[in-house]
């Protein structure tokens, strides 16, 4: 082998060099400019930075969703927290984050010295960077802003506000989003409410607490929990009114207060329902003639069911 190689070298030594110089002259070959290589390196770093930034935005929106929904009134919309989570998690953004992390990995590996770092190091650093930056962006409220702006600009994009509307604007399931538009001649008993789909409802407010009525009277968007009593005539029996908490000024304390109000209200209705049942049992025990179930309030039924 080594003898053959030496022969080869002797035979091709000048031949190769001459051929090379001939081709350089003939094809007018020039070394590529330094700027070309510098720009390529810059492009790789810029793409890496871009993927980290987009990944950070995805994290910011995901953090916003998780923080916001940890106070959700999920008992009103879902059977358990898991099914609720499946419905509200921003899977598109999670997918964007995964893709951007991969893209960041690819770009960093293609920088001049990127190959020197192990896959794990690059992957971990990209994830940590995106999380740190994403959390910082969310701290300044960018998660909410981007999500809601995208929701406004793009019809197809399901912002968290749209998700919340979708979860709550279901009259048949006893949930509505909208505003009180008119009083009636009996404002203590009925009001007129317009939901986000533009339908006007006559709302029975007889079981509402004073603070609920006050919330409605503010004429601002609210969430309504209750039951449709007559779908044809658009009659709705309200049991709870909860403020609409989707705006950039909503704090975690507001969300926490809103959730506590919901839990308290449901608790009160539940106690009310249990008391009525106990009273009925007592009546049945005392008198063999008591055959009719005492009237149960609509809201107490809802509280028991949930």
């Amino acid at each position: 082998m080594s003898t053959n190689m030496n022969d080869f070298n002797k035979n091709t030594d000048t031949k190769l060099k001459d051929t090379l110089f001939y081709r350089i002259e003939d094809e007018n070959l020039q070394p590529r400019s330094r700027i070309f290589f510098k720009s390529r390196e810059c492009v790789m770093w810029a793409l890496w930075l871009m993927s980290i930034l987009i990944g950070a935005l995805a994290v910011a929106i995901s953090v916003f969703v998780v923080l916001h929904h940890q106070y959700a009134l999920y008992e009103a919309t879902h059977t358990n927290f898991f099914t609720f989570l499946v419905d509200i998690l921003p899977f598109v953004w999670l997918a964007v984050f995964v893709f951007m992390t991969y893209f960041a990995l690819y770009n960093l590996r293609h920088t001049k010295h990127g190959y020197r770092y192990s896959m794990t190091t690059i992957l971990c650093s990209s994830i940590v960077l995106s999380f740190a930056l994403g959390s910082a962006l969310q701290f300044f409220g960018l998660g909410y802003t981007i999500d809601s702006q995208l929701g406004k600009q793009m019809k197809m994009y399901m912002s968290q506000e749209k998700v919340e509307v979708k979860l709550w604007q279901q009259p048949e399931s006893g949930r509505m989003v909208g505003v009180q538009v008119l009083d009636t001649v009996e404002p203590e008993k009925f009001i007129i409410f317009e939901d986000v789909s533009g339908n006007r409802w006559r709302i029975d407010v007889i079981e509402l607490f004073p603070e609920d009525k006050a919330l409605l009277a503010d004429m601002r968007r609210v969430r309504l929990l209750g039951e449709v009593t007559d779908l044809k005539n658009k009659l709705f029996h309200a049991c709870g009114v909860f403020s609409w908490v989707f705006n950039e000024n909503t704090t975690r304390s507001d969300l926490s207060t809103s959730r506590q109000a919901f839990v308290d209200k449901m608790g009160q209705f539940k106690v009310q329902a249990e008391n009525r049942l106990a009273e009925y049992e007592k009546q049945t025990f005392d008198s063999a003639s008591a055959t009719n179930t005492p009237p149960m309030s609509v809201c107490a039924n809802i509280a028991l069911a949930r």
């Binding site: 190769l16 090379l20 350089i24 070959l29 020039q30 590529r32 330094r34 070309f36 290589f37």
Partner: peptide
Amino acid sequence: FLKVYKNLNG
């Protein structure tokens, strides 16, 4: 070698 020549600046 041609690649080396063309990419010397790199």
